[in-house]
């Protein structure tokens, strides 16, 4: 094949001939490619095509081709509804809290674990802190509902601080706090892995040099440890920025109820409730398309920013 490619006439070979030659050499790959391609077309590209129902009054009985086209009707009715602002606000606020409190938490944990010199202790703390990551979302939310119930242990703890004994999860004021705090609890250990791994590659000579220069523990952290993490932190931060408009629906759906829609309902959970639960397929798809559109813009912006600042990008 290499010989064929270097022959002067090779470039003039038609596309068809090249495919045929390539097929002769890689026939198995071609055949293996087909089922994979079929999977992607059916379960990823057909749904993308299905987004067109956002511009229709989709009726399952009539199908995508028989339903009436209505243009931007669903988008307009979403943007003019009271829900629109509430959903965008809740989605952004949950992400903001997550960014402010949830993002630094694993970094701080990694720095603290890195200061531990006793290896078995280090290992034990790490293994224990990974545990919540492996517990299923249903169980996590079951625990939260139980602990936040009016007889639950978290409620009991809050009564020590002078709060009334009520079901915490029925309080709109507390929903986002509980959501973000439990997220941190679940992900802090797991999130620290990537930072700890980067720290383990730090050159020990740097610390020795710092000690010779008279740097104390705290100064070593500030001047040696933290700078090794900075590129990673910037990259992770930018990737977070690209997800500011998306909140996973699973935990929201499990935790919220009619009393907490005001602060807990986010775009994705609303799509589920209106689209799948109430069967309003077209409207739900329109809201979801609006959300994807925002996500793509944020992602492209974040990626461009990343390329400018760190020379690293996702594509």
């Amino acid at each position: 094949m290499n010989a064929a490619a270097t022959r002067p006439g090779a470039r003039r070979q038609s596309w068809r001939t090249r495919v045929r030659k390539n097929y002769q050499r890689y026939s198995l790959v071609y055949w293996l490619c087909l089922p994979i391609l079929a999977y992607y077309i059916i379960f990823h590209y057909l749904p993308m095509f299905g987004i067109c129902i956002a511009f229709q009054d989709y009726r399952p009985a009539k199908g995508v081709f028989g339903s009436k086209w209505v243009g931007l009707k669903h988008f307009l009715s979403f943007f003019t509804s009271d829900y629109c602002w509430r959903l965008i606000r809740n989605t952004l606020l949950i992400n903001c809290y997550n960014l402010i409190f949830g993002f630094p938490a694993p970094i701080i944990l990694a720095l603290l674990i890195n200061e531990v010199k006793c290896a078995p202790f280090k290992k034990t703390v790490q293994t224990i802190s990974y545990m919540p990551h492996f517990v299923s979302m249903v169980v996590i939310c079951g625990l939260l509902v139980d602990f936040c119930a009016s007889t639950g242990i978290l409620t009991t703890i809050t009564t020590f601080f002078g709060f009334e004994r009520t079901n915490l999860l029925n309080s709109p004021k507390l929903f986002r706090t509980i959501y973000v705090a439990s997220d941190i609890w679940q992900q802090i250990g797991w999130g620290s892995i990537i930072y700890l791994a980067t720290l383990s590659t730090t050159d020990p000579n740097l610390y020795e040099a710092a000690v010779i220069d008279g740097a104390g523990r705290f100064q070593q952290v500030i001047h040696v440890t933290l700078p090794t993490l900075v590129p990673l932190i910037i990259l992770q931060l930018i990737m977070r920025m690209g997800q500011m408009m998306s909140v996973g629906y699973e935990k929201i759906i499990l935790l919220y109820n009619g009393l907490t829609y005001e602060t807990g309902d986010v775009i994705s959970s609303y799509v589920y409730r209106r689209g799948l639960q109430s069967g309003d397929f077209s409207f739900g798809t329109a809201v979801s398309l609006f959300n994807s559109f925002c996500n793509i813009i944020l992602l492209v912006a974040a990626n461009t920013l990343s390329r400018k600042l760190t020379n690293e990008s996702m594509w």
Partner: peptide
């Protein structure tokens, strides 16, 4: 092929169209 597959990591049909296809 790489493009076809990686593209789905960034954009998808979403919950409802996928449900209809399934």
């Amino acid at each position: 092929m790489t493009f076809i597959m990686v593209f789905t990591m960034y954009f998808g049909g979403g919950m409802i169209p996928t449900f209809i296809v399934v």
